[in-house]
């Protein structure tokens, strides 16, 4: 699903990733941790095909990241720091628009809105008038209708209340069970029920720990 070998990414002249080697299988849920500036968001954007790989080798969803970025992108759902929403459209209109871009049915749009608790009066509210948490829910609803094979989530719990976090956790579990792969950047503590199965720790643009390789819960090998 994701196979990075000594991947180097430059942001301008700055080496944001300095040789990342990472393998993630289909259906796996992987959490990436690390200090600010470690390269976590850059890693997600590389896997999304939004940044070019400067050195090394990378395949995502079976496609070479250097050659087939467009094919890869159409199967990826990325939730970044920005919501990717239009402020002068309602929550429902936003989800419907992003749904129309991927040929989602009206039923799928309605179900996604309902799942994220945006049905009722919230669906007709302009995004600019929504709270940060409600915007996050709208972004997730737009992500659900995309039905991506690879979910790249940058701080998925950000701005969400307890109910929202539980919803997102359930959503991630369901997506993984249905065969999607989830790579998530998070500072949230690891859930005691073992919901996070694998933790990768990034520092200085390199992976310094991976629980899949015998690291501890902080990812330090």
């Amino acid at each position: 699903m994701i196979d990075l070998r000594e991947a180097v990414v430059l942001l301008g002249q700055f080496p944001a990733l300095t040789g990342v080697t990472l393998k993630v299988s289909q259906g796996e849920i992987v959490t990436v941790r690390g200090p600010n500036g470690a390269g976590k968001s850059t890693l997600l954007r590389l896997c999304a095909g939004l940044l070019p790989i400067r050195e090394g080798f990378a395949t995502v969803l079976g496609q070479n990241l250097g050659e087939n970025r467009r094919i890869i992108r159409s199967n990826i759902g990325l939730l970044g720091h920005m919501s990717g929403l239009y402020e002068d459209l309602t929550a429902e209109e936003n989800v419907a628009f992003w749904g129309s871009m991927v040929r989602a049915t009206n039923h799928e749009v309605r179900e996604a809105i309902k799942f994220m608790g945006l049905n009722g009066r919230l669906s007709d509210v302009l995004v600019r008038q929504l709270s940060a948490g409600q915007r996050r829910r709208t972004s997730f609803a737009a992500l659900i209708v995309q039905r991506p094979s690879l979910w790249l989530l940058d701080e998925p719990h950000a701005a969400l209340d307890g109910e929202g976090r539980a919803l997102v956790d359930g959503l991630i579990e369901d997506a993984a069970k249905s065969g999607a792969t989830i790579l998530s950047v998070s500072h949230a503590p690891i859930e005691p029920d073992g919901r996070i199965r694998r933790v990768v720790t990034l520092a200085g643009g390199r992976i310094i720990g991976d629980t899949a390789n015998g690291g501890n819960s902080d990812g330090i090998s």
């Binding site: 939004l50 992108r73 990325l78 402020e87 992003w98 871009m101």
Partner: peptide, 15 residues
């Protein structure tokens, strides 16, 4: 409209 909240980038992630 497209730049305000990274909607252009989101469009790239559609077919």
């Amino acid at each position: 409209i497209e730049d305000a909240d990274a909607a252009r980038e989101r469009t790239l992630l559609t077919p």
